[in-house]
């Protein structure tokens, strides 16, 4: 049975839930069955946020099993590593190399080294979003990156983005394109 399981890891304020929603809507528009779930309890207070999107012909559980995700999307490297257990043997981790602020001190280089050793595809999502003219759009950069691997038409993403993002449409479309371009250099 065909299925695509996507785990999205980040912290509050990074647009995790919106990214999950956009993937959900794109898959639905292409006629797939979808279930999405999220844990956002303390999201507003800088806590971890985890979304799960399950796409397939028939989806029962909203939850993705550990070791079975097809994609691990990270809006932040530490949170992506924290959820590494979700990734399946053939799964791909597409992760922003830009860190979210954390009052705890740690070596960013060690974290990135760890991510590279696990074959994470690292892209500077925040830097690219800034380049696109919208620093809030790092999530859309990641969407552009994963779109390279997902079986959905570019025109569907564009339609969903336009219908659901009322502000900064042009910047978001650019962020999407930059993400898609960047991942092709790595993949």
């Amino acid at each position: 049975m065909k299925k695509i399981d996507v785990v999205i890891a980040g912290v509050g304020g990074q647009g995790n839930l919106l990214l999950a929603k956009l993937i959900t809507l794109t898959a639905l528009a292409e006629g797939w069955a979808v279930k999405r779930s999220e844990i956002k309890g303390l999201a507003q207070r800088g806590g971890s946020v985890l979304s799960q999107v399950r796409i397939g012909e028939k989806i029962w559980s909203p939850l993705i099993e550990l070791g079975s995700a097809d994609f691990l999307l990270g809006l932040e490297p530490v949170e992506a590593l924290r959820n590494y257990q979700f990734l399946g043997p053939q799964g791909k981790a597409i992760v922003s190399s830009n860190f979210a602020p954390n009052p705890i001190k740690f070596s960013e280089e060690e974290i990135l080294e760890k991510a590279r050793s696990l074959n994470f595809l690292l892209i500077p999502a925040l830097d690219l979003a800034k380049k696109a003219g919208s620093p809030q759009s790092a999530n859309i950069v990641i969407l552009g990156a994963v779109s390279h691997f997902l079986p959905f038409a570019l025109s569907t993403y564009e339609k969903v983005l336009k219908e659901n993002l009322k502000r900064l449409q042009e910047e978001n479309l650019k962020a999407f394109a930059l993400g898609r371009e960047e991942i092709q250099k790595l993949a």
Partner: peptide, 17 residues
């Protein structure tokens, strides 16, 4: 058989905005 979790990551405590 999920992969082994990555250990020794910096914790992230929820805190005041």
């Amino acid at each position: 058989s999920p992969p082994t979790p990555v250990e020794n990551l910096p914790p992230r405590y929820p805190t005041f905005c």
